[in-house]
Structure formats: C-alpha cells, structure tokens
Design a protein around this nucleic acid. Structure first.
Length: 789
DNA sequence: CGCACCACAATTTTT
DNA sequence: TTGTGGTGCG
C-alpha cells in the first residue's frame, strides 16, 4: 500500500515531467509520457508524429520511466518533493527514474531518409548523445545484427546483399537453367511468391515439400526454383532484402544467448509507419522488444499503401490483442493542411470500410478550395500545371514549394517536356536509381566479385565486360563445370588448365582470375577509393568507355566518376572504409535518399514516394478513371480501398493549395484513351471544391462521344495558356517576338531575347533575364507568359 | 563474337 | 511512347 507521501511525490514528479512538454498537445503529451509497456499510437497524416517520437526519446533519456511509473527513486525525500513541486533547478534530477542510455533505444523507420531525418532532429535536440541511438531501417538494423553473428547461420560476416534487380537476374538465370519459360513463370511473380513464403516463415525445402504434397505443378516448380535460389544466394554469400529479416528472426529464435543479448540491450523499441510492416517484421519487433516489453508503434491504417508488397494492416488492427496491456493513443489534430483540403481527404477516405476510424481536424482555418481542372490532353495538363506554377513563382513562391504527384512514373514525361520548354527547374524523384544504371552495376559488380569471388551472378556480368574474348560458350562451360564440381565459376576459371573443355579459353580465364586475385590483394591494403581506381584501371573498363567516344559513353564515364564521389562521401560520413560495408549501404539505398529538399526546383514523383513529405502547393495529375484508380483496381474491392488510401495520402501532402488535374484524352504507352474524371474527385463534397469541369465529364455521367473534336491534338496543344498570336505555325510566331526584343515574363521578370533558333515548327529562344540569368525557352510556351516592353 | 534489328509488354515499390 | 530481350548476320 502506497502512503500519502509516495502518492504526492509521484504526482508531483509526473506533473513536473509533463510540464516539460507543454509545447505539445494533450494527446501528444500522453504519447510522449506513456513510456512503459506496449503502446499503439494512431497518428493521422500531419499530426506531428515525428515530433512525438523525438520528444518521447528525449523524455526517455532525461527522465527514464519517471513520467509513467509509481516507483520512487532512492532520493525521494521531503526536499526532493518540494523541489519537484516548485520546479526548481534540482527538479530535473529528482524527476529522473532510470534514465536510459541512448544505445538502449532502437527506433525503426522505413526509409533511410526518415531515419536520417530522425537522427538529425535528435542530434539537434540532444546533441552528441543522439549518435548512440539506433535510428535505422528494419533492414539496416538487421545488417548490424547479422554482421555480428552471420556465422551462426553459415554465412560469412562479410555477406553481401542482392537488390531487386540482382534477384531478378538470378531468377531469370535459374529459369533458363531449369528450361522453364519466362512467360509461364514471370520472374516477378516467382519472386513475389518466394517473398510471401519467407514472410510466412516457410523455408525453401519446406515450401517444396508442401508443394509436392499438394501436387500443384506450378507450386512444385516454384518450390524447385526457391530451393535453387537459396542455394545460389548462399553460395555467393549473399542475402536478399527478405533474407535480412528472415535470417535475423531465425538467428534470434535459434540462439538463446544471441537473443538474450539483444533483448537485454534494447530497453525501448519504437517503430514508425507500422501499417507498412509485414508479418516477419512484426515477429522481429516482438522478438527484439521481448526483454523489456517496451514496444511503441506509430502508424495510420488509412495510409497503408504497400499491401501489394506484403505489408499487412493486420499488424495494426491486432496490435492491442498481440501485446497485452497495450495502451492506444490517437493523434487527430493535423498541423499541416487547411480545412478544405483536410475535409476533402476525410470525405474520400470515409468511403473505405474496415478501418479504425479517425477524423482529422485542424484549427488552421478553411484556406483555399480544392481546385479541379480538366485539360484536353496530357500535354495540356502539363502545360496547365507549368503555367500555374509560373504564376505562383511570379508572385513570390519558391519552385520547391510545388510538388506534382502522379500514379505511375510513365506519367512524368509530358510534365518534363512542359517544364523544359517553360524553363522551370524541376527534379524527378524515383524511376531508375543511380545505382541501377548499367555502368554503375558493372563497376559495383567488380567490387562485389573482389569481395566475394564465389558470386557467380556478378561474375557473369563482368567476366567479359569489357570484352576479353570470353564468349557465351566459354561462360556456359564454366557454369556447367562449376555445377558438376560443386564449386564456383571463379574456382573453375582460376584452375582453367585442368579442364580439357576449356582449352581455348583457359589463358584468358586464368588472366581474368589472376586480375581478380590481384585486386583482392590490393583491397586488403588500400582504401576503398584507391580500390575503385585500381578496378577501373586494371579491368580496362574505363579505357573501353573512352576508346569508343560517343555521347552515351561520355555520360557513362561521368556516372562512374560520380560513383567515386559517392564512395568518398560514404567513407567521410560513416567513417567506414570496408568494402562490404559500402556494398551493403548501396543495396539499401533508394532514389528518394537523393532528394534534396533545399534545392529550389519543382519536384515530381509518384504518390507512393510522396508519403511522409509535405508541400505548400500540390498538383495531382491524371485524376481519371483507369489511371487513378487504375484499371486493375476497378471492380476489385480490396484493391480499390488501397487505391483510395493512396489518394488519401496524396491529398494530405498539401499544406495550402491542392489542385486535381485530369485530361479528357490521354496518350499513354503509345495509345490514346478518353477517361472519365476519377471517382475520387466525385467523393469530395462540392463545398470544398472549385470545379472547372465541362458538362458531360463527371465520373457519374456517361462518357460523351468524343467524335472528331479531339482527334487533332496539334490544334489544342497549347490552348490552355497560349494566346491566339502564337497558335499559328512557326513563321507567324516570329512576328510576335524577334531577336533583340525586350520582354517581360510573368515568372522570370524582364529580359532580352538574345538568340532564336527554329526548332520543330517552333523556336528555341534564349532570353537574358535581369534577375534569373539566361534561360532557354520554347517560344510558343513562353509567349503565353511574356509581353514586349 | 559483337552489333543491328524487330517483337513485345508496360502499376505502384520506403528495403 | 519507351525499354528490354531474343535472333540473325557480318
């Protein structure tokens, strides 16, 4: 039975600690202070969850469980109580109860970028100590755990990581060797099936036996591929993304002392974006937090948009059942958007059934209406967005305050063209990663082979690149021999003389093998940077690029140089100069990590990539049935709900202005379609919308016969912005503006036309602006925003 | 062996 | 529309 003093002390302590977080709202404070036991934070979009996470960690470091415990510490006497009640300079000391060492905190996020931001904000708030907090992704946490004990799983601690394109090629290779048709067994779906199996913790052998028992031919084949896939990965001392988690779980479950070590270590485990975790990640989380039982997850079921990748909303929905004594806190106040935008988003997501239910609110005021705009075609759409952004820029907005979101990467091209011809700086996030470019993959493959010569996949990529006279035939023979002798292709190549089948190629093979051996020696004694130079030189890769001098190869050489600065950068930032460290880092790197929010440029990306970001102006393009929602989701209830969540995510990116744009007619993948306006637009109540839709194009209305009206796109191409003077073909355009004209541009200010070059029925002009410097513009587009002075 | 040409298919993808 | 992979020729 606690006495009055104890009660009073605990109350004073809790109040004192709470008082340190009054800059947060009531719910946020609760989330920060509920440190002990399982906690589920349902955090709506823009509800300040990162702020909560950071303050929560700060609270843990400063006061430990002081704010959430009935226990007293050893100094709890009358003087301490008085100090707490007054809140004097000693109160901090008395309020602390088991303050946590930073290295006992594990904060898991989904992207490197989110992890980086978390670290940065923690460091700003807590200083040096923040560096010892493990703020990382699931995957990088697993790499760190596995680097210590991979040997217990039979891997070497210098294991490498296969990224998506590596695993694709590996499966393709296996399909070929097993004489299976890629049409019947698309590598993508095979990999998806393997991934699903791993998520359910079904190993290759087990999967195969199950498949055989079910006597489903397709599953048996996939099982055989799975077994072979794992065998080859293991032989190459490599893991794929799922393996990192799969094997970490295995390691922890099968090795009590290892498990105990990590469980003892991590007193507090925090997981962000919990709605995007899969089953395996849930298991890992519960294993790691199993020692102290302090697991805090933050998520939003309405923002779950990666179900197609195995994420399961179940993890959130059943969290309260899985973790007994769990507390749940909802963060529903939104600090990001004005209320028309927020109400629009709320209205759309309300159409989903099977969600926890949550209504965001704001006290920011109503702000602008959501604008809906219909363009004639995809080029008009792009030009409309470009014109609108230029108008904003002309009124003092920054380029970087604008984001354009679309459903798929293929939609970026017309936008890119429009931005180019209007001279608007832009950047595209997503698409092909820098590290996925062929030349980068080549050079990295050299590095991988130097690290692990047994890696047949990477070896195959480079053994005849640049050409060394080792042809497809020799490579096949190598592969067969390696299989027969139960060794790697490198092993055979190094010992090529011993095999009669290789007589013609043996010299070249041994030359290649000894080059790799020399590079391995070199790697042991030199820095990463030096190793890269040595590889480029000794392999002749760079020389081959330079010998055939064309634009493409110059680009490639440039990229290779960029790779070098990436290495220098990595070594500088992490202090790690090891080959395997760098290679792992690269595999876990995404294009989003490249996105620099400071650079003043309009940014375009898919709605998926936009998750977690926010912008004053957001344009969502392609708001059409068949695009968004996509054809594949129409009629599929579950998928439509995921699509709607994606829409919710997209809408809630906007802070002040939100524009939804669609086109009556769109050319995509080479063919033209006429789509109705997206149902999501119709789901927004009229009072939040400023519509500019001609009659006959609403989702609920029948599509109108387009007839000949929109056949001639050339006529209407620039009709949104261009005045009639420039609608005429090129010669007429030259009459409106001429070389040497002084002009005033809506966005760029005053300038002089310094150059005019005819180009495809239009003119490429160069204008020397007083403020912005020289810009290259297409005359037709520019004329709409320019006048002579 | 390397290159040129043609058919083919093509959501979304934090790791 | 673009990128990829397979085939056939020099």
């Amino acid at each position: 039975m606690v006495n009055d003093f104890e009660k009073r002390f605990v109350k004073a302590r809790k109040e004192y600690i709470r008082a340190q977080f009054t800059h947060l709202n009531e719910m946020q404070q609760q989330a920060v202070l509920a440190t002990e036991g399982p906690l589920l934070i349902l955090a709506g979009a823009g509800s300040g969850k990162t702020t909560v996470l950071i303050n929560r960690i700060a609270n843990l470091l400063r006061y430990g469980k002081g704010g959430d415990s009935e226990e007293l510490n050893e100094y709890a006497d009358a003087a301490a109580l008085e100090s707490l009640e007054k809140g004097d300079e000693n109160a901090d000391f008395y309020a602390a109860l088991d303050p946590v060492e930073p290295w006992r905190i594990l904060a898991i996020t989904f992207t490197n970028k989110a992890a980086g931001e978390l670290k940065e904000r923690l460091e700003r708030m807590l200083g040096e100590r923040a560096n010892d907090i493990w703020a990382c992704t699931f995957h990088s946490a697993c790499v760190r755990i596995l680097r210590r004990d991979a040997e217990k799983l039979g891997f070497s601690t210098s294991f490498t990581i296969y990224d998506t394109s590596d695993t694709q090629s590996l499966v393709k290779r296996i399909l070929k060797d097993m004489e299976l048709d890629e049409k019947m067994m698309p590598p993508r779906s095979v990999l998806a099936e393997i991934s699903r199996a791993k998520d359910s913790r079904i190993g290759a052998q087990e999967y195969l036996s199950q498949a055989r028992a079910s006597s489903d031919f397709r599953r048996v084949k996939i099982g055989e591929i799975y077994v072979e896939y794992m065998r080859r990965l293991f032989a190459a001392n490599a893991m794929d993304f799922d393996d990192l988690i799969f094997f970490t779980v295995k390691l922890l479950e099968e090795n009590d002392e290892v498990c105990a070590y990590w469980q003892r270590r991590f007193r507090y485990v925090l997981i962000d974006e919990y709605q995007d975790t899969n089953h395996l990640q849930y298991l890992l989380a519960s294993l790691l937090s199993g020692g102290w039982g302090n697991i805090c997850v933050v998520g939003d079921d309405d923002q779950s948009i990666y179900k197609f990748r195995g994420a399961t909303i179940e993890n959130i929905l059943s969290f309260e059942n899985e973790f007994k004594g769990c507390r749940t806190i909802r963060l529903e106040q939104n600090y990001r958007s004005t209320s028309h935008i927020l109400d629009a988003a709320n209205a759309v997501i309300r159409n989903n059934i099977g969600r926890k239910g949550k209504e965001l609110w704001t006290n920011k005021g109503s702000g602008d209406l959501v604008s809906v705009q219909v363009a004639d075609n995809e080029n008009d759409e792009a030009q409309y967005v470009a014109s609108s952004i230029m108008a904003n820029y002309g009124q003092g907005a920054n380029w970087r305050d604008h984001a354009i979101l679309y459903r798929m990467n293929a939609q970026s091209r017309p936008l890119e063209n429009a931005f180019k011809r209007n001279g608007i700086p832009y950047r595209i996030v997503g698409g092909t990663r820098f590290f996925d470019r062929a030349e980068i993959k080549d050079v990295l493959s050299y590095m991988c082979v130097v690290a692990t010569p047994e890696d047949d996949l990477r070896l195959t990529r480079i053994i005849n690149n640049p050409p060394r006279g080792i042809g497809a035939k020799s490579i096949e023979t190598l592969r067969t021999l390696a299989l027969e002798n139960n060794t790697s292709m490198f092993g055979i190549a190094a010992d090529a003389d011993s095999y009669a089948e290789l007589r013609t190629a043996s010299i070249k093979l041994r030359l290649f093998a000894s080059m790799i051996e020399e590079l391995r020696d070199f790697a042991k004694k030199n820095s990463l940077e030096a190793l890269l130079d040595e590889i480029l030189d000794k392999s002749g890769y760079l020389r081959a690029l330079e010998e055939k001098d064309n634009e493409e190869n110059r680009d490639r050489a440039e990229n290779v140089r960029e790779l070098k600065s990436s290495i220098v950068n990595y070594v500088q930032e992490t202090g790690d100069d090891t080959l395997e460290g760098y290679l792992a880092n690269i595999a876990l790197y995404s294009d989003l990590d490249n996105y620099d929010r400071e650079a003043d440029a309009v940014v375009m990306m898919t709605m998926h990539s936009a998750k977690g970001l926010e912008f004053p102006w957001v344009y969502i393009v392609g708001m059409e049935e068949g695009i968004f929602p996509g054809t594949r989701c129409i009629g599929e209830h579950e998928e439509m709900e995921e699509e709607r969540r994606l829409c919710y995510v997209a809408l809630t990116r906007a802070e002040k202005h939100l524009e939804l744009v669609c086109a009556r007619q769109r050319m995509l993948f080479g063919s033209t379609t006429a789509n109705r306006v997206s149902r999501f637009v119709d789901e927004i109540p009229a009072e939040h919308v400023k519509k500019n839709i001609p009659r006959g194009y609403g989702f609920s209305e029948k599509p109108r016969d387009l007839g000949f009206a929109y056949k001639s796109t050339a006529q209407s191409r620039h009709s949104v912005a261009a005045p009639s003077a420039v609608k005429a073909p090129a010669p007429a355009a030259s009459t409106a503006f001429a070389l040497g004209d002084s002009v005033r541009h809506k966005a760029f200010g005053e300038g002089v036309i310094t150059k005019m070059t005819p180009m495809g029925g239009d003119y490429l002009i160069e204008v020397n602006f007083e403020q912005q410097g020289t810009k290259k513009l297409m005359l037709r587009a520019a004329a709409a925003h320019m006048e002579k002075v």
